[in-house]
């Protein structure tokens, strides 16, 4: 941070402030909308809660309904009353969690083993195999969808958690191996050699020494993989499909969008429910996240 002349500094801070406002405004709008009554959501802009606070009547009903599937009574245009059960995101939330946690842990564990093998063990084909693994970074996951869909069809895996864990593992591995290799291969040789001389096996070295030392790399990689898996839509659409009971949050949101208009108040609350976890992870672990980003792109 440098201090320029005061007019320049004023200009810089002002411009930055405006940019930040523009960046926050859309999210802020959604947050306001999610607290508005269902009748007004599609009638007036969310900013009217600020311009006319007296008529705002904010409510947390949308969240209640989204989280508990609260029963609501609707009166349609003919005057008939009907009771519908609101969209319940609890299940989708749990599904997202069930998909995400193993889909983060499994690839990182497997990648760490592989990275250690490539970095510190000697075996024929080491170099060429490593090059192939890194080269697989260029393969877009779209290319794997059709062949995998057929395999899954044959194995009757479509719509199971296993199918989607494995898919996320496969698609996440090249980057994970690459980043873990970069980290593990730069640990000082002397630590590993002295442990081996002391009679520790490679397995022991890996488990007791390398994994604890790699915590920073594992932390940043986990955040990435978590955000990627939690926010993923394509892989879920292809491999879970419309299997009821297994749908993750992003899929549920997609269906809520599909319902055009009448359920928008729920959509807003639902969108925020889906963002709570990634935003918490992100804000609390931002430091690791940034470190990971830098590791994947520039020298920090």
């Amino acid at each position: 941070m440098k201090k320029g002349p005061s007019t320049t500094s004023f200009f810089i801070n002002g411009l930055l402030l405006v940019i930040c406002l523009i960046w926050t405004l859309p999210t802020f709008g959604l947050l306001m909308t999610s607290f508005r009554d269902r009748d007004v959501v599609s009638k007036t802009g969310w900013w009217t809660t600020l311009t006319r606070p007296s008529q705002a009547n904010l409510t947390i009903d949308n969240y209640k309904q989204v989280l508990s599937g609260k029963k609501i009574t609707l009166v349609d245009h003919k005057g008939n009353k009907r009771t519908v059960r609101g969209d319940n995101l609890n299940r989708a939330f749990l599904n997202s969690l069930t998909v995400s946690i193993p889909a983060v842990v499994i690839p990182i564990l497997i990648a760490s083993f592989a990275a250690y093998g490539f970095a510190w063990m000697d075996f024929p084909g080491r170099k060429i195999l490593f090059i192939i693994v890194v080269a697989l970074l260029v393969v877009p996951l779209q290319i794997a969808l059709i062949p995998l869909l057929r395999d899954y069809g044959r194995l009757e895996l479509t719509g199971t958690f296993l199918a989607i864990w494995l898919a996320h593992t496969g698609f996440g591995l090249p980057l994970s191996v690459y980043l873990m290799y970069n980290y593990i291969s730069q640990l000082p040789r002397s630590i590993i050699e002295s442990a081996i001389i002391d009679g520790c096996s490679h397995f022991g070295v890996f488990w007791k020494l390398i994994l604890p030392l790699s915590v920073p790399a594992i932390a940043s990689l986990s955040i990435f993989q978590f955000l990627w898996v939690w926010n993923d839509l394509l892989v879920a659409l292809v491999f879970i499909g419309s299997k009821p009971g297994v749908e993750v949050l992003t899929q549920r949101l997609l269906y809520m969008i599909g319902s055009r208009g009448q359920d928008w108040h729920l959509l807003c609350a639902g969108a925020f429910v889906s963002m709570i976890l990634p935003l918490t992870v992100f804000l609390s672990l931002q430091r690791y996240f940034v470190r990971g980003l830098l590791a994947g792109s520039v020298k920090g």
Binding site: F113, M121, L136, P147
Partner: peptide, 25 residues
């Protein structure tokens, strides 16, 4: 054999999920 326990699982999964699908596609 031990090195293959370390790198093997990653290689198998990568073959199934990325390497072979490229050829199959």
């Amino acid at each position: 054999i031990l090195p293959y326990l370390f790198v093997g699982p990653a290689l198998v999964i990568l073959s199934w999920y990325l390497f072979l699908p490229t050829i199959r596609s």
